[in-house]
Design a protein around this nucleic acid. Structure first.
Lengths: 219, 219
DNA sequence: GCTTTTTTGTACCATTTCGCAAAGAATTCC
DNA sequence: GGAATTCTTTGCGAAATGGTACAAAAAAGC
């Protein structure tokens, strides 16, 4: 038999578009739905978010939600993981960038403020900080993720400062670890204050003051 | 008529013990009950705390709770006010103390860590920070209280640093406002991390690093 | 002793919550 | 076209939630 006109068994490893699934096609896009769920969790927190709300936000009815992501807790965890991935993407290149330390910090905090102040109904803050304050306390798995988030940020800042030292932008006498913790503390304080609707101007003032201190007060 | 042996109408302004109320006496002490409610709110947050739980914790049944403190939201607000009052008492004299700046900061953070790490079932963190992350977003009254809390702390630290400058412990070139915001940021970062069960040793390391920087890195 | 006042205790209600079972719809495979 | 598969839809149900009505109880006033 010669090749029939039927779609041949071209295996096409890592099918990018339609994996040709077997049954009824999904009425939603998992990625989009997860994003909507994340939005809601960020707005109201885990406890105050209902499955009805999630259902409405994602456009999926309850059983579909359950089938796609598991129960509420699993959906929360997947949402949080998504948040972290997004944040890594948004921050990653800035941290890796070769700008002078001061410029680099400015851009990092600018992006952070964009993330924290976004939101249709009130600023959404930092999801890691929010989760640390609530679910992380009683749920070990979530706690582990949050701690990892803190460590990741500390580490990123630390390598940032160490690089600056190597480039001679900072005195070698400075302790990069300490500076990194201060930088993280500044992230945390603006995240919390943003959530309480402190205006961006004030948050930027805090950031600028902190940068001055970290880069050696002298202007 | 001479004085009868009956308890005379000694008005006893500001009756300290028994105001001789009219009806059935309360079976609880309002102050104690409010403390128990606060404990529960700090542990689980507003949304995850049920009236049943509050009822059990305070020993008051639901209608009594309602009669004494109002609905859940009002009880939460009263609990938070109580927390702030307690914190002010615990911190007040240290802030007002005349110790050298470094010692003073050390003691402030030690007391803060005591507050944040206390709790039978997991560290309870800073209630202001927790509330900022959750209820403050959608409730203007609560938000106002939280913002006031932030401002109060910033201001206390600022006067602290200004005093140190006057005493010549810090260079006059330093910006007391900026230092105060850093000090607050350090409070916030240890509050959040404490809630995620970062061990006290690590938190103390963060504090010590921050103090070094604030007091002018040189040991 | 009787009334008045204040609090307690029981019971209840309407609503919301999370989760699931079961039947129907849309697609692929043969 | 029919079986198999996967998802959607409707609807249910058991539990928990915030809040309240109402009668009984415990004190003071007269």
């Amino acid at each position: 038999m010669v090749q029939k006109s039927k779609k041949p068994p071209v295996p096409r490893i890592d099918a990018p578009v339609q994996p040709k699934r077997r049954g009824r096609p999904r009425a939603y896009e998992p990625g989009v739905a997860l994003g909507k769920a994340l939005d809601l969790f960020r707005k109201d927190g885990f406890a105050a978010t209902s499955l009805d709300g999630l259902s409405a936000a994602t456009g999926m009815n309850r059983p579909s939600l359950y089938g796609a992501f598991g129960d509420k807790r699993e959906l929360f965890i997947k949402s949080y993981r998504r948040y972290r991935d997004d944040a890594r993407v948004a921050m990653g290149d800035i941290f890796r960038n070769e700008l002078p330390i001061r410029k680099r910090l400015e851009r990092i905090y600018a992006v952070a403020l964009d993330i924290y102040l976004s939101g249709e109904s009130g600023p959404r803050g930092c999801f890691t900080v929010m989760t640390a304050a609530s679910e992380a306390v009683h749920d070990p798995d979530i706690r582990a993720m949050v701690l990892e988030g803190f460590a990741e940020l500390d580490k990123a800042f630390a390598t940032c400062f160490r690089l600056a030292q190597e480039k001679g932008e900072l005195p070698v006498s400075a302790d990069a670890t300490v500076l990194a913790q201060l930088a993280s503390a500044t992230i945390h304080t603006i995240a919390i204050r943003a959530r309480a609707q402190v205006p961006r101007k004030e948050l930027e003032a805090i950031v600028n003051g902190a940068i001055d201190v970290m880069c050696g007060a002298a202007k």
